[in-house]
Every structure is written in C-alpha cells, then in structure tokens.
Simulated scan of single mutants.
Amino acid sequence: MRNISDFIEQYLKSTLLKNGNELLEIKRSELAKRFECVPSQINYVISTRFTLEKGYIVESKRGGGGYIRIIKVEAHEKSDLYNHLLQLVGPVIDQQTAENIVMRLYEEKAVTKREANLMVSVLDRSVLKVELPYRDQIRSNVLKAMINTLKYK
C-alpha cells in the first residue's frame, strides 16, 4: 500500500517530466495544501527522495516568497555518470546511500535490474558482517570497485 510520501514523490517526478526534466519550482505550502499534509511532510519527501546520489539538485528558500527548486541532473556520457558517483562515495558510505547510488545506475540504464539487485545484495549489512565504521569503509571500497569495473568494461 502506498503512502502519502509515495504520492508526493510521484507527483513531483511526473511534473518534472512534463517540464522536460529541466527544472521544477514549487511552493511548499501549496504542495502541502494539495496533498492535505503538513509542510514538514514535503520537506521529508524532498530530503529523502530527491538527493544528489539519486540525481537531483534541490534548492530551497524559506519564507513568504519561498520555493523549492528541483533540478534533475543527467550525465551526458556514462563516464561522466561513473565519475560523478565515484565522487559521491567517499571513504565511507552507509547502506541506504549505497543503494541510492545503485538505483541511480539502474535508472540511468548503466546497469540492468539484475545487475542492480546483485550489487545491492553484496552491499547489504547482512553480508558485510563487521562492526562500524569498518563495514561502511568496506562497503565504500566494494562499491567503488564495482563502479570502476563498469567504467572500464
């Protein structure tokens, strides 16, 4: 069963698509009225589902004339995508962020659904059975190795 966050995300993505995937500018309060929710629900959706690793840049201005601007970032070449994602990984990475990066690879058609599922399974905490912060360091190294392998097929 879908929740309000799913509906808000879907609405924003479809509106962005109608705008040619270029830019979407909305008012937080108007969106909250549309979905009959509190503005903090809008903030939650934006901050968790429109992140840089998922391919979005979000700009926000609070106040009476405030807005939220969502920009879809698309790489011109696969190598640009790989380089960008490698920069996002860093020396440590948590499981959710790693999964977001893999889903971005899938959405950009850099990997198949099966390959994405394999990547996610290898990065899972149930497989990397070591204590933090070592687990996040190993996950980072493994993810970087996979992206570099894709980059230089």
Rank of each mutant, 00 (worst) to 15 (best):
I101L: 02
K33W: 05
K129Y: 05
G66I: 12
S40M: 15
A145P: 04
P133C: 08
L17F: 08
K27G: 13
K27C: 07
I71D: 04
R114P: 00
E30S: 11
I70R: 06
A32P: 09
L31N: 06
Y56D: 04
S126F: 08
Q137C: 00
Q41M: 13
D94K: 14
T97W: 00
L16C: 01
V92N: 07
S29Y: 15
L31K: 14
G90H: 03
V58Q: 01
Y82L: 04
L23N: 10
V92L: 12
K18F: 07
V142K: 07
Y67A: 07
A116R: 05
R139V: 09
N141K: 11
G55Q: 12
T112I: 04
F7A: 08
E108N: 06
R69F: 02
Y134S: 03
I42A: 05
I26F: 11
L132H: 15
D80L: 05
V58M: 07
I101P: 08
E115L: 08
V45N: 12
S14G: 00
I101H: 08
K129L: 14
L52Q: 11
K18E: 13
A116E: 06
I93M: 04
L52T: 12
V122G: 00
A116Y: 11
V45Y: 13
R49T: 09
Q95C: 06
G20K: 02
F7L: 12
T97A: 03
I68E: 11
L23Q: 14
A98R: 03
K144Y: 07
G90K: 00
E36A: 10
N148I: 10
Q87K: 11
I4P: 02
F50I: 07
V73Y: 03
L88N: 00
S29F: 14
V92I: 12
D80R: 10
E22K: 14
K151Q: 14
V73Q: 00
C37R: 15
I93D: 01
K109A: 10
L105S: 07
S79R: 15
L128M: 10
I101K: 02
V45R: 14
V73F: 00
L105R: 07
I4Q: 13
